[in-house]
Design a binder for these strands. Structure first.
Lengths: 223, 223
DNA sequence: CGGAGTGATTTA
DNA sequence: TAAATCACTCCG
């Protein structure tokens, strides 16, 4: 019948103890703090602090600091987090690398030289090709769903009820094989530019590696 | 030339300040948090929290927490939100009311008698009309975006890269006026059934009202 | 025990 | 999916 003293923690090596202290006053009254004590009596107040000591000898990725138990489901969240961080860093990395490679120039050229396919027609009184192009472009950056157009019959019957602001005001259109072929041509152009950029990047990374040596560097801490 | 510190917020009463802090690490690195500070220095971390203090003395319905400015258009979004909630409740209400009125029978009949329009063709080796119908139905309840099909040329060139699980595996299709006319005929049928159901419902409600008295009944409790 | 900084969860 | 809100950790 221990109340709240230091209790042996089965999930950790023999001799490690856990203590939970309830806060008595203030804005956080009623909340609690959890501490761990090593066999030698050293106090640990957080999981990172604990991991700096035990992380080398055991896996704490699934250890829940608050409960003191291993949580099988929690390990996956940690790994996912690491993957996400890697992806995030990769994204930032490439954003940096590609800066100044005239991506915006390329897309502007594409817009200027863009011919509207015959299958893509505007709707309503004031529809010009320009307005339509703007409408589609606007829809493209306004939402992330596919641009499909709106079905004309529905709009004509009851515009007030049926108008869908997430779609440009134009007839539903079909993308023909010819349209795709033309677009693929344009993509080839841009891809070539990207390839040049990547080649330059790989060369510069090779140079970096030669200078810096291997990746697993021990930054060494503590006595 | 303030940098990023606490800046006076003109849209709020004098003395209120706003600060935006960029997250520096973790999986949400790069995102930002917006805080407000009352003249006395109390920190507010969300619009609901802010509204609990200022909502009594001023109207925050058009106040945009992230930008700190009044957004004339945003008030409408609030009203739209209320309307949507009302609609959602109405939907639940009618789902309740219509239970047991053979709604599922009706939809099954529709499915059984449904002919696929000529413009809607399946793709790939094992595509039967049944499988296609299942695919479309599945897509309809799997996501809320418009069902457009996937462009055939793209799929044939590189299925592994381009397969879009949010769209049924069928050629992009066109809805013709004839298709719409046929569908409207079917809708008329269902609508008639619904009308019968509603009539029965209204009658039963009228009977309820006669028994229970008016709607704003004080159920009177306590002493 | 406070509170800035992030994670986790909910909502649009 | 992304934004907003809320909850919690971790260290002073």
């Amino acid at each position: 019948m221990e109340r709240q003293g230091r209790m042996e923690c089965p999930a950790l090596p023999p001799g490690w103890k856990k203590e939970e202290v309830i806060r008595k006053s203030g804005l956080s009254a009623g909340k609690s703090d959890v501490y761990y004590f090593s066999p030698s009596g050293k106090k640990f107040r957080s999981k990172p602090q604990l991991a700096r000591y035990l992380g080398n000898s055991m896996d704490l990725s699934s250890f829940d600091f608050r409960t003191g138990k291993m949580m099988p489901g929690k390990a996956q969240k940690n790994k996912q987090r690491l993957r996400n961080e890697a992806l995030q860093q990769a994204k930032l990395f490439w954003e940096k690398r590609l800066q100044g490679l005239s991506a915006s120039d390329v897309s502007e050229q594409i817009l200027r030289s863009m011919e509207l396919p015959k299958g893509l027609q505007g709707l309503g009184p004031g529809s010009s090709a320009d307005a339509l192009l703007s409408a589609v472009a606007s829809a493209l950056h306004t939402s992330s769903v596919p641009i499909t157009g709106q079905v004309s019959a529905a709009v004509e019957k009851n515009p007030a009820v049926w108008l869908n602001t997430a779609q440009p005001l134009c007839k539903a259109f079909v993308v023909t094989d010819e349209d795709i072929r033309k677009q693929e041509e344009r993509v080839q152009q841009v891809r070539k530019k990207l390839e040049e950029a990547l080649t330059a990047d790989i060369l510069s990374r090779a140079a970096d590696t030669e200078r810096d040596g291997d990746m697993d560097v021990d930054h060494g801490e503590e006595a």
